[in-house]
Computed example of a mutant assay.
Amino acid sequence: MTSATATRRLTTSAMIASFADPGQRTDSAPFGHALAALAEQDPRVVGLTADLGKYTDMHVFAQAHPHRFFQMGMAEQLLLGAAAGMAEVGLVPFASTYAVFAARRAYDFLCLDIAEPNLNVNIVGGLPGLTTGYGPSHQATEDIAIFRGMPNLTIVDPCDSVDIAQAVPQLAASEGPTYLRLLRGKVPTVLDEYDYTFQLGKAAVLRGGRDVVFVSSGLMTMRALQAAERLAEHHVDVAVVHAPTIKPFDAATVLAEVDSDRLVVTLENHTVVGGLFETVASAAVRAGVAKRIVPVALPDEFLAAGALPTLHDRYGLATDRIVEKVLGELA
């Protein structure tokens, strides 16, 4: 690391909530624009937020459809309770807040008001995993673990702007509640280069490879693809399987790649406890697939505050760290 790089990392604001690389193609507020476009076609769609419209890109919807937007204030339980009531009368609500508040503060309202009656309420959780440097109060590193055990709840962890834009209408059309781990602001555009289409409940093989299989979700699919290109320089051929729907999980597609003599690595922007790694491992055990699976994930601890590039490097989510880990496993 050069001294200039070190200085830049130290002075970068902890507010950063973008994981885009310098010069990378991005799309601004893909969720907000997708929801506004969907509302043009479907009069049932409404948007709610808990004082976080600007920070969950819901403000785009609010500007386009002001009479179908509801600002609930800093009251996440009220946010989900109101969304449940709207769904009861036939509306299709999208309710946005930070992922930590949906998972930690309003869990019981989501469980009993929305999931138990299987209502079509779509929860949009901003700042999932390590997408902010604010520290444990805002880092939703365990949200999937909290929500995986909730019956009826669909969980989606999108990679990029393509995933988000295509997921929104499918979430609205699906029965029952959904939880979307929102990537906001200037979101990278990655998957359009891989002949990919988001399908709710389905995983997709983005590239083949004879030596290693990456199974990834969320922003870590972007990192998996980057690491695969880097590993090719070391003559390591890497397949990448993107699993944006964590629940219900597409075990058939994933296990078809896992059940081989290749090194299998899961990559997720979530604690190693209760997320993609354990989902894949559980599916393998249930299917009788005897396979060692190596996780790239956040540690089971409260994380530090700071700038995202520094934190991603420290906790192993950076592309360089992924490449190092794979080469170490193959050595």
Rank of each mutant, 00 (worst) to 15 (best):
L10A: 11
P93Y: 03
V326I: 08
Q24E: 08
P30A: 07
P22K: 15
R148M: 10
R286P: 07
A283G: 01
V121S: 06
K291F: 08
A256V: 05
F277K: 05
A82S: 14
M1Y: 13
R9P: 07
A20R: 01
L255D: 10
S174Q: 15
H270V: 02
A84K: 07
H67S: 10
D313I: 15
N122D: 08
A36D: 04
R321E: 04
Y134D: 09
P43N: 06
F277N: 06
M220A: 02
A14F: 03
G90Y: 06
A165Y: 01
R230P: 00
P188E: 01
A106W: 00
Q41E: 14
M150I: 15
G201Q: 11
S217Y: 04
P299D: 12
R262E: 04
G274V: 04
S18M: 06
A297L: 09
I164M: 07
Q170A: 02
Y134E: 13
L219P: 03
L308R: 00
G185C: 09
L327E: 03
A36V: 10
N120S: 15
Q199G: 06
V264Q: 09
A87T: 12
F249K: 02
T7C: 02
V258Q: 10
A318Y: 05
M74C: 11
T221E: 05
I16V: 13
R104F: 07
G328P: 13
V326A: 02
Y107N: 11
L308Q: 06
G53R: 14
F249I: 03
D157Y: 07
T253E: 08
L200E: 02
G129W: 10
T49L: 01
A95N: 05
R321F: 02
E229M: 15
A36I: 12
S217A: 14
Q166C: 07
L206W: 12
G208L: 15
F147S: 11
L119G: 01
G316T: 07
L200C: 02
I146C: 11
L80E: 03
D237S: 15
A75I: 00
A227R: 06
V46M: 10
L327T: 00
V60K: 06
S18W: 00
D108Q: 15
V326L: 06
P66G: 06
I246M: 10
I155K: 03
V272A: 15
L119D: 00
G185P: 01
S161K: 05
R262C: 09
S3I: 07
G185N: 05
V121G: 00
Q166Y: 01
L330V: 05
V272K: 03
H234F: 09
N269R: 10
S161V: 02
D195F: 13
Q166I: 05
V215W: 04
A256R: 12
A75F: 07
M86A: 14
